[in-house]
């Protein structure tokens, strides 16, 4: 899939010839395996090898949260975790939240509240909100702000997003 120019750019997000590390992990409940470069991020493996492009690649610095996934239930930035660190562990991406055609209540709430503009930050926010409500079903506004502080939206501001979190908590 990746070729030419991109092969020469020294990011972990780019295809490397040396894929000497075999990893086996559970992604969204299914056992998966992949051959990865030792320095490859979990985000790259999810998107480019396991064909789960829901987690977005934006800052690659852990600042924006667009790549948020759950690693053994803990919210992490997939761009800062090496794929090899996830070997033997359980990963949940935004694709794993819905029950087939039935959206997760957090996804429904984001749609209903209109908490989406360009949508690039949305998968990360949805995963972060699902993690918050799993741990704390009735969060205060302050707890919401804290839980979503690692997820940046550059379109809407956060009012609609917090509306969606409140809506999801009630549903």
């Amino acid at each position: 899939m990746r070729c030419g120019f991109w092969r020469n750019v020294p990011w972990s997000g780019v295809w490397h010839e040396d894929r000497g590390v075999k990893i086996r992990l559970t992604v969204n409940g299914e056992p998966r395996e992949a051959d990865v470069w030792a320095g490859e991020s979990l985000l790259t493996t999810l998107r480019d090898t396991l064909e789960l492009p829901g987690s977005k690649n934006a800052c690659e610095q852990g600042e924006c949260g667009s790549c948020s996934v759950l690693l053994d239930g803990a919210l992490v930035c997939a761009c800062l975790v090496l794929a090899a660190q996830a070997d033997g562990h359980e990963v949940t991406t935004v694709e794993g939240l819905a029950d087939r055609e039935e959206l997760h209540r957090v996804q429904r709430a984001f749609v209903e509240a209109g908490a989406v503009q360009c949508g690039f930050c949305t998968p990360g926010l949805v995963v972060a909100t699902a993690a918050l409500l799993e741990a704390n079903p009735d969060p205060s506004d302050d707890e919401m702000r804290e839980a979503l502080s690692g997820n940046l939206c550059r379109c809407t501001g956060y009012a609609k997003i917090f509306d969606a979190v409140r809506l999801a908590a009630r549903s």
């Binding site: 690693l71 919210l75 992490v76 800062l80 975790v81 972060a128 804290e146 502080s149 690692g150």
Partner: peptide
């Protein structure tokens, strides 16, 4: 020190 995502790792 950091966002929840970074503090978890």
């Amino acid at each position: 020190a950091a966002s929840p995502q970074l503090r978890a790792m």
